[in-house]
Structure formats: C-alpha cells, structure tokens
C-alpha cells in the first residue's frame, strides 16, 4: 500500500482491541498525508492521552505523546516555534472535549495552522468505559449506569462557532470520504478539525446493544445524514430526524490564520 511506509512497522500490530475503529482512522489520515507530498522529517504528530492518542506511536515521524488533554497546547508550541513543520493532532472525545476543551476552543479562535483528527468513540475507552462529554443521552457507561442524563457536545458546531477554518464530520465507515476530508483539512491554512465517529466494541458497544462490531458500524452508516440531504430537508421545511447526525464537510472558510508556513 502506498502509505504503508508511514508506519513504524516494528510497533505493529497495535494495542487497539479487535474491531476498534482507530486503526481505520489512522489509515485514512496517513493515506491523505501520503498524497500531500510532505517530508516525514517535517511532519509532526502530537497526541494526548487515551486510546486515540496512542496513534502517533505507530507512525514513523517525530511524534509527541503528551499529557491528558494538552495535545493541542503542545502542538501550538511546536507550530509557533517552527512554522515550517506540518502538525497533525490525534485526539479523542474525552481528551479533547473534556479535559482539553479550553485548549481546543482557543486553538480554533487563534485559527492556528494545524489539523486535528478527533476519534470520537463517545466513551472513555482506555480507562474502561466511563461516560464522556459526547456520550449520547440515555447511553450506558460505567459512570452512567442508569443512562447518560447530560446533553452531549456537538464538537463540529463548537469548532465552527470558535472560529476554525475547516470543519468536517465522518464516521469510521466512510473511509473514502474521510480520506478526502482529511486531505482538504491538511490543505486548508488555519485550524482544521475533523471529527470521526467510531466504534468502540469493548467499552461502548458491549453496554449499548452493539455486541458485534458490524452492528455498530451498520448503525453509524444508517444514522449518518449527509449535510447536503439535511440542507434539502431544511429548505423544504421537512422534518430532520433527531436520532441522526450530520456528516460531510460542514465549514470551509478563509479567515486569517496563525503560524502558516511562510
């Protein structure tokens, strides 16, 4: 495969559980990066703590695996000190939306030139399945044993409101679309945010009636509503189903950005 030489082959197979979508997202991101003709020594992967954040450890570039939630803050330092570098951040929903929420919105506001790929499995996978800020209402987790009572974050709307230049959402089923979106994000100067809904068979699926990985992927596929279709429904004043999430390229604009390669 073309992006195969971006992997640290001595580290594979990785630690993700069987059926975990994180590996898929790494594939799509690397496939997009491979098309950018970036040099490996000028590409830096940064991550925080969690399942998603183990990803840079399997990629053959300089990589920074940092503290919980702070990946974007570390990446800001790397990018500001060396604007020549291409900075990509892998993060998860708990890492980025809970403990790192402040760093996330401020990076969007600064519109700093980096790409953030958020592997949203809607749960804290590495610590064994606690509720996260994106756990849907009513879903079970080890800290929401009677169903999650809180309203989840819409990370893409958050990023758009905070000022990011590029925002997209896909799922781990939409591999080709995801690859294209990541590539578009990498090409966009300024802050690019790509949220990827993914399956976590071990911590999420097991408690929420997706015992089989394929059932969860089928759910992600059937409950994703293309942005164009949503817009059509809104235009015709038709009902937009509440249980579906919008996928597609949600925001693309050209606001002034920080730390762009000279």
């Amino acid at each position: 495969m073309s992006y195969d030489d971006w992997f640290r082959k001595d580290r594979l197979p990785h630690i993700f559980c069987a059926g975990c979508g994180n590996g898929t997202i790494i594939n799509c991101t690397l496939a997009a990066i491979d098309q950018m003709n970036w040099k490996k020594e000028e590409t830096i992967f940064v991550s925080g703590i969690g399942c998603s954040s183990r990803a840079p450890g399997y990629i053959l570039t300089d990589s920074l695996h940092t503290t919980h939630g702070r990946a974007i803050a570390f990446a800001t330092g790397v990018k500001m000190a060396k604007p020549d570098f291409n900075v990509v951040v892998f993060t998860g929903d708990g890492d980025m939306a809970a403990i790192g929420g402040n760093h996330f919105i401020h990076a969007c506001r600064r519109n700093i030139d980096m790409t953030v790929v958020c592997m949203n499995n809607q749960i804290y996978g590495m610590t064994g399945g606690q509720g996260s800020p994106t756990t849907p209402k009513g879903c079970l987790s080890s800290t929401t044993p009677y169903g999650c009572a809180e309203t989840p974050f819409d990370l893409c709307e958050l990023a758009t409101a905070a000022g990011a230049n590029f925002v997209a959402r896909w799922t781990s089923y939409h591999v080709k679309e995801l690859e294209k979106s990541v590539k578009a994000g990498l090409e966009t100067p300024g802050f690019s945010f790509i949220e990827v809904l993914t399956q976590c068979p071990t911590a999420f699926g097991r408690r929420n009636k997706f015992r089989q990985v394929i059932d969860h992927v089928e759910f992600l596929k059937s409950h994703s509503l293309l942005k164009a279709k949503r817009d059509r429904l809104v235009e015709k004043h038709e009902h937009v189903p509440e249980d579906m999430f919008v996928v597609g390229e949600l925001t693309r604009r050209n606001r002034p950005a920080l730390g762009v390669k000279p």
């Binding site: 300089d62 702070r70 803050a73 570390f74 790397v78 000190a81 402040n102």
Partner: peptide
Amino acid sequence: IAGIASIIGASWT
C-alpha cells in the same frame, strides 16, 4: 498549563 505545554513543544523543535 498550555503555557508550559507550548514551551515543551517548542523545545523539541
């Protein structure tokens, strides 16, 4: 927190 995070990132460059 972000302040020291950023200088650690910068230091590695």
